[in-house]
Write a protein that binds this DNA or RNA. Structure first.
Lengths: 345, 345
DNA sequence: TCCAAAAATGTAAGCGCTTGCATTTTATAG
DNA sequence: CTATAAAATGCAAGCGCTTACATTTTTGGA
């Protein structure tokens, strides 16, 4: 029976007849070891299947080559593409990514932040600015650089990479209004702890204001982020006595839910009711009718975020927030309002 | 200026006037410390914002309360729901989840396995049985229990939790054939290194065989896992001289791509061509027409996997593979074959 | 009040690795 | 061939934590 315990640096050293220091150097700074020795050592490493203990390494070297990311959810595609790109780029930079998800809950996020930090993440990617002050000071105390993604807000103290949610949604709302819509419904994710949602709502308000439509006339429903909730919210809006002519949605997932519910309730989209989304995830173009939405450059955001964060870890100079541009993606689900709004159903 | 360095156990001990052992116990086995002391210590912990160093802890305790999972991709929803459930359950068990994705590449997966192991994952969740022998022996040497998910195959030496991909696909194919289809197309993920794909193909073969249809008549295309590829493959199949009357797809993502392409090419689904999927992810019910597919109990699989794996880590007794049942989910995209197959387009 | 057993706490030895510094070996030049 | 600088390697001190074992304190019965 093979010796059960996992081989350590020392085992390699003994077997290769060198000191542990040399083995360590073979692994970390190979050019500081003469070729013969190096080959011999690496051979032994192979042979006995040595694999360095990460904890010990982190402890001794105070560096882990690891970056953590905490996203609100893995369950829908909103963050998936961006994170995937983030991970790919990190890999190329020789950095490992640890992902955790918080289920949109602040306390869970805080816990995950502690976990990842304790695990020695050299840097952290977080979504959105909104979170407890204490967390920021904790992070600062730990000396862990943080990059905020999916938002661009140069006024926040923490560096961010992303887009202007408020402006993007405003642009879309302007488009909607330009088509003649005055009665607007909005299905949003819950604002609490979610600044993206908040910014987007404000964007709609802005556009209404600018066109002399009272922002208070907005039919706003806040709900959880999934298709079902989108459907329910849509039903609620459409069953009220003053139906809007367009239902804008805080993201594509909600919009797809709305779309489905519209179909179920017998509304034709966009003839009877227009629906818009946000994010331009795959779902948006697959839906029928295809969703008019705001295109977000997820992959670009992920890759850039990776490079920025790694730079932040390595260099201590001051970085600045980066803005990415979104654009409106006109597809089929948005048109002029019907002439006789309540004709159908 | 505050002292820059991160507080350690010793700092807490000094401040609270106890030994480091006591502080450690307050954190790990609070009932072994008298209340007064415990409160005082925890107070100090709070005050100076102490957070234990994971590496040191893992090093000393030889246990990390962490489980790793490596999935082929985060980019589409196939694994998302299962992993989300897995994570939720782990959380309840007080275990942290580390997720990595391999982009369907064996070498990347091997690397991630090493990484997660080195990081001290107490156990590992992997998808599918197929991988290099060496990896299994490496894992065994490291003493890291492994659970394979998304597959059930009691003949494999490694414990698995999942469903019988072959049988499930066979059942669906039987259904398809029962409707009268004889000309069958199949869009599959690449078989290489993907036993789920392989099992599913075999399942279709089985059903054909059983009905006296030559398995060799199957129009099979292997492609990458995304909507676009599904669309391309569908076009290829339908542009060939002997079109099938039904295109089965290895998963819903491919099926949605096929659906989209069908629409684009002017085929009515299911009147002109039937399409089926596999997995029953959200996309399937949202698509138009809604996809006939195989429902996989993702959440149940995730939760059960979590409990099993944690048990495997804690108890060393022998575990056995668990099978979950799938069922066919009949929706709109499948019907009888058209009377005059090549009437349209 | 005293004593043994139980409970609480302290002491200190590692866990496996990196790295500054000391020592040995090799290369270079005179 | 020798002296010296440079390269390679070894030595050993931690990194921050857990835990077996030792010591001190508390508890409770006689």
């Amino acid at each position: 029976m093979r010796k059960k315990s996992v081989p350590t640096l020392e085992d390699v050293a003994l077997e290769a007849n060198v000191s542990t220091a040399t083995v360590s150097r073979c692994l970390n700074t190979p050019d500081r070891v003469v070729e013969g020795t190096r080959l011999r050592v690496l051979d032994v490493v192979q042979k006995i299947g040595y694999s360095p203990n990460f904890g010990a390494r982190a402890l001794a070297a105070k560096r882990t080559n690891t970056i953590g990311a905490i996203i609100p959810t893995m369950e829908n595609a909103i963050f998936a593409r961006g994170i995937q790109a983030f991970q790919e780029e990190l890999r190329e930079l020789g950095v490992t990514l640890l992902v955790a998800s918080s289920s949109y809950q602040e306390d869970i996020e805080a816990e995950q932040i502690r976990t990842l930090t304790a695990r020695g993440a050299d840097g952290l990617l977080l979504i959105g600015h909104h979170r407890n002050k204490e967390i920021y000071s904790f992070l600062e105390r730990q000396g862990v650089p943080v990059l905020i993604a999916w938002v661009y807000d140069p006024n926040e103290p923490t560096i961010s990479i992303g887009f202007d949610n408020r402006q993007a949604m405003k642009d879309l709302a302007l488009e909607v209004i330009a088509l003649g819509h005055k009665e607007i419904g909005l299905i949003s994710a819950e604002q609490k702890g979610n600044d993206r949602a908040r910014y987007r709502i404000t964007g709609v308000h802005d556009a209404m204001q600018e066109n002399g439509i009272a922002p208070s006339s907005l039919r706003l429903i806040e709900t959880r982020y999934n298709i079902e909730s989108g459907a329910t919210a849509f039903a609620e809006i459409m069953n009220s006595h003053d139906r809007p002519t367009v239902v804008m949605c805080g993201n594509d997932v909600l919009a797809v839910g709305a779309l489905r519910q519209a179909k179920k309730m017998g509304f034709r989209v966009p003839q009877d009711i227009s629906i818009t989304g946000f994010d331009d995830i795959e779902l948006a173009s697959v839906a029928d009718p295809a969703l008019t939405t705001v295109h977000v450059p997820h992959r670009e955001m992920g890759r850039t975020a990776a490079r920025m964060l790694v730079a932040m870890v390595n260099e201590s100079k001051q970085f600045k927030s980066t803005q990415l541009m979104t654009h409106i993606c006109i597809r089929e689900s948005l048109s002029e309002p019907p002439l006789h709004p309540n004709a159908s159903t």
